[in-house]
């Protein structure tokens, strides 16, 4: 990555971190309901991979920890926050919520709440790309725990069999909700599990964005060149609990501190300062500007946006309920 790109990405990562922390606050204030899964600690994963890919062009799909992936693809943070507030101006018009952010215009194909559910959908998106002959790829970001679902293996088999242009990114944060990977999974290193399907795989540090980027570039190039699927495992850590109701009683504060010593944002910041590309004062300005943007534009937009109308409760259930198409009316085309 060039220095200017790194500076831009640092600013984006600060936005991603602060956005999530603001969500935390809004949840405590009961402005956001339901389940809320936050991303702090894992920012280098999404950012590193998407810097190597083409955000807004390549198709991205993920699980329920999806706000940052949507924003990275090009979704407006204002609309994402409005979605969390359940507002009509939200990215899914308030019908989806935190776990179901979508931005089809930027090829962000959504957040899904069933662990492992996006695996076959990602392969299907890749199948559509293959049929249409485009140069996009499908990128599926999921956690390590999703790999214990049956559809993980079903999907890897089909993706390899049909050489589908799909990159599986495993953000291995070591916990499936409150169960550590050692206690749930016979093979801790996930990239080893895909060898059975003849899918090339790689593993790297998921906290250092430079390392993620280098590995992701090879992975993305492999898929885009028409060589079929690739599996990239990123070793990472989520600072907060699985969701807001999780008090993290299953792991020690010492373990958390060890991971926070290698914070993805601070590592990139310090590297840029050491290289003379920015000063600490520059970084503090970024933080201040980001907080102001989140407060004065993002949160304000969500707060002031209207609720959906109750009259529209059943809107969006079926696509062509009112159409006069022959397949609904039975009259000849």
């Amino acid at each position: 990555m060039k220095i200017d790109d790194k500076k831009r990405v640092l600013r984006e990562m600060v936005l991603h971190r602060r956005f999530e922390e603001r969500c935390y606050q809004a949840y405590i204030e009961r402005k956001i309901g339901g389940f809320l899964h936050l991303y702090p600690g894992q920012e280098a994963c999404c950012n590193g991979v998407m810097e190597a890919a083409r955000p807004g062009h390549d198709y991205v799909i993920t699980g329920y920890r999806d706000h940052v992936h949507a924003i990275k693809c090009g979704a407006d943070p204002k609309e994402v926050m409005a979605e969390l507030y359940g507002k009509e101006t939200g990215s899914s018009k308030g019908r989806g919520g935190s776990m179901h952010i979508f931005d089809a215009a930027h090829h962000f194909m959504g957040g899904y709440a069933l662990v492992g559910g996006p695996f076959p959908l990602a392969a299907g998106i890749a199948k559509a790309i293959q049929l249409k002959g485009g140069d996009e790829i499908a990128i599926c970001f999921l956690g390590d725990a999703a790999n214990n679902q049956g559809v993980f293996h079903e999907t890897l088999n089909m993706a390899a069999l049909w050489k589908l242009p799909v990159l599986f990114v495993c953000e291995n944060n070591l916990y499936g909700i409150g169960t550590s990977i050692e206690r749930s999974t016979a093979v801790v290193h996930q990239h080893k599990r895909v060898a059975a399907y003849n899918i090339p795989a790689d593993e790297c540090d998921g906290q250092d964005i430079d390392i993620v980027y280098e590995h992701a570039r090879k992975a993305v190039d492999h898929v885009r060149a028409g060589n079929g699927p690739f599996f990239l495992e990123l070793m990472t850590y989520r600072y907060r609990g699985h969701s807001m109701s999780d008090s993290r009683g299953y792991r020690s504060r010492e373990e958390e501190e060890v991971w926070k010593q290698r914070d993805p944002i601070l590592m990139l910041r310090d590297r840029l300062i050491t290289a003379g590309a920015m000063t600490m004062a520059d970084y503090e300005t970024i933080e201040k500007e980001t907080d102001a943007y989140i407060e004065n534009e993002v949160t304000k937009f969500a707060e002031e946006s209207p609720e959906p109308r109750v009259e529209d409760l059943e809107k969006y259930v079926l696509a062509d309920r009112e159409s006069q198409q022959p397949w609904l009316t039975g009259k000849a085309a």
Binding site: I61, M109, G117, F119, P120, L121, A122, A123, G124, I125, A126, K127, A128, L131, G150, V151, E154, T155, N157, M158
Partner: peptide, 10 residues
Amino acid sequence: GGFTGLGIGA
């Protein structure tokens, strides 16, 4: 489960 999901994704 896999191929049904694949069709849906497409």
